[in-house]
């Protein structure tokens, strides 16, 4: 079985976000980088599938040279190969991103590598476009399941479950297929020291994708980012109801006031 997992390098925003002076990017001078939690889980799932079924796993990203770090992090937990579609670091819109990924998968196929499963995170942590997996699947004529939080692959069929209204929806598709997974499908492992060392020595296969021009003649791409801004803060002053257990009556008064105390 061959599994491809697609990830995106994003800044690790813990506390407050600040913007670059042109308001086009997050100011990342003091931030580390990672991939979305959904994609960490997609990567872990790829490693587990290969451990269980044999075969080979590949991680792919579209991003700047620095995204090699995220590819190596994936190889450190057991992904076999890495492909970098190298950009100048500008954000690519979801249409252009999916076109570049499709081109890369077709190039792999032309070189004799075909994939049984293409794994994505359900949405990128930063841009949250909710569509790249679907666009890739349609272009390649593959079935696609989004929001996957449980997966079983057997006899060439993927059975995937996703949360819906407090219960679950179950889907079944023949392979090859595209799956966009959510955090919670597994608990990703930490990389081992030997794993890190192995990943450091591995080669990263590179190519330079061609951007689909936004606003040019031909089919549209986008949405095209103009600027970023921080939402208006709704911070008010917090009212301290008390300290420790003695605050209980004041808190329960509050619960009564807002009408959530069942009698």
């Amino acid at each position: 079985m061959n599994v491809l997992v697609c990830v995106k390098r994003v800044p690790e925003t813990g506390g407050r976000v600040t913007l670059s002076s042109d308001a086009r990017e997050i100011d990342t001078r003091y931030l580390g980088f990672t991939v979305s939690p959904h994609e960490e889980c997609a990567t872990e799932e790829a490693v587990r599938l290969i451990e269980a079924n044999g075969g080979s796993s590949t991680v792919l990203t579209l991003g700047p040279e620095a995204a090699s770090d995220q590819l190596r992090a994936a190889m450190a937990i057991g992904i076999d190969r890495a492909i970098l579609l190298e950009t100048d670091g500008q954000d690519w819109d979801p249409v252009s991103t999916s076109v570049a990924i499709v081109d890369a998968i077709r190039a792999e196929a032309a070189a004799g590598v075909s994939y049984d499963l293409l794994l994505f995170g359900n949405e990128a942590a930063d841009s949250g476009d909710f569509q790249v997996a679907i666009r890739v699947a349609l272009a390649l004529g593959l079935p696609c399941i989004n929001g996957v939080k449980s997966l079983a692959v057997k006899d060439g069929v993927a059975t995937a479950r996703r949360e819906a209204g407090g219960g679950w929806e179950v889907f079944e598709v023949p392979l090859p297929a595209v799956l966009a997974v959510r955090e919670g499908i597994n608990l990703p492992r930490y990389p081992s020291v030997p794993g890190r060392l192995r990943a450091k020595k591995k080669e990263i296969e590179r190519s330079v994708p061609v951007a689909r021009l936004v606003g040019a003649m031909g089919p549209a791409a986008g949405p095209e980012k103009i600027r970023l801004r921080l939402p208006a803060e709704t911070e008010g002053r917090v009212e301290i109801l008390g300290t420790g257990a003695e605050a209980a009556p004041a808190v329960v008064d509050l619960l009564e006031r807002i009408g959530v105390l069942a009698r």
């Binding site: 925003t13 976000v17 791409a221 986008g222 949405p223 095209e224």
Partner: peptide, 9 residues
């Protein structure tokens, strides 16, 4: 936690 103004074609 962040907003984007974007053009949609």
């Amino acid at each position: 936690s962040l907003l984007e103004e974007a053009r949609l074609d």
